[in-house]
């Protein structure tokens, strides 16, 4: 059994638990285990884009310092917002010794962060270390005939230096779907933002973005979308369901980890959705039970 230190993040630890359950089920089938950090704090969700607020890097630095202090060289994330925030802060701190020293001097209640920890997204672990061929070999319930639109959103691939794949032409989700026996559907909106946190300030913008994304998925022939971020998932499920004129655009979304767990013979941990994915799965012979 291989193990890797794991940072859940607030979303995954709360309303997006199904993302983690799916990942655990899938990794067990692949002889891997995620070990959650014993103490962790919020990454800050959004990476600070200003030059004068080192304070916003304190949260990520604390996570990185604790992971390094646990003797690890890398840290696994599932949520693409956590991935991006931690990875970008890591790069920001490691790139400049003086900056790193200042943050360490402030964080005098933690061991120093020495720089260089690798922040790894689960998709990178699957593609680069476990390998999609090995994943394919362990598939026990091929997702035969299932037409799935990968939805990348923003932070999984942007910026380029902190992304898991090419920001304009990513294939990491399509290749995974192919390995699982599903049919990956190309859509025009797969890398265009869902509205992210604007869902709090401008819910209508998020609704209209969800409608555009769903419409593109349906135009491509998709019957299901996959996401790698609890906020994308919220916008593509709840905001889409609320949107006016979305009654014929009700394409469901699940986390990629859930489809992975399903194909590897595990429980995809499908919880309550606004737009139920179960009928779509059942129509392809993939019936699953909803856990209370």
């Amino acid at each position: 059994m291989n193990t890797i230190l794991y940072y859940p993040g607030c979303g995954v630890a709360d309303q997006a638990r199904s993302m983690e359950k799916g990942a655990r089920e899938a990794l067990t089938a692949l002889d891997w285990e995620m070990q959650e950090m014993s103490r962790w704090n919020c990454c800050g969700t959004v990476y600070s884009l200003a030059t004068d607020d080192l304070m916003r890097h304190v949260g990520p630095a604390r996570v990185l310092a604790r992971a390094q202090d646990a003797g690890q060289e890398r840290l696994l994330t599932l949520c693409s917002m956590c991935y991006s925030t931690l990875k970008r802060s890591e790069q920001f701190l490691t790139a400049d010794r003086e900056r790193l020293d200042r943050v360490n001097a402030f964080l005098d209640d933690e061991p120093d962060y020495r720089g260089g920890l690798r922040v790894v997204h689960l998709l990178e672990l699957l593609r680069d270390e476990i390998g999609y061929e090995a994943v394919q070999e362990r598939v026990v319930r091929p997702l035969q005939g299932l037409k799935v639109a990968p939805y990348y959103g923003c932070t999984l691939t942007r910026p380029r230096a902190a992304g898991v794949d090419d920001p304009e032409r990513p294939t990491v989700l399509e290749d995974l779907l192919t390995a699982l026996g599903a049919e990956a559907v190309a859509t025009a909106e797969r890398v265009e933002c869902c509205g992210a946190y604007l869902t709090a300030s401008s819910p209508d913008v998020a609704r209209r973005r969800a409608v555009d994304i769903a419409r593109a998925a349906i135009a491509g022939g998709a019957e299901l979308m996959i996401t790698s971020c609890p906020l994308c998932q919220y916008n593509l499920d709840t905001r889409l369901a609320e949107a006016r004129g979305s009654s014929d655009l009700r394409v469901p979304s699940v986390y990629f980890t859930q489809l992975l767990a399903l194909a590897l013979g595990g429980d995809p941990a499908v919880e309550e959705h606004e737009i139920d994915p179960l009928p779509v799965l059942a129509a392809r012979g993939l019936s699953v039970e909803v856990k209370a």
């Binding site: 607030c10 979303g11 630890a13 962790w40 704090n41 919020c42 916003r56 949260g59 604390r62 209640d109």
Partner: peptide, 25 residues
């Protein structure tokens, strides 16, 4: 911002930041 100043101020030596972080999630 997870600076932990609260925990350091606490006379009861509580992990204040950790409970604020738990509140956040």
């Amino acid at each position: 911002v997870a600076c932990n100043t609260c925990s350091r101020a606490c006379p009861q030596e509580l992990e204040v930041m950790d409970y604020i972080q738990a509140a956040l999630r």
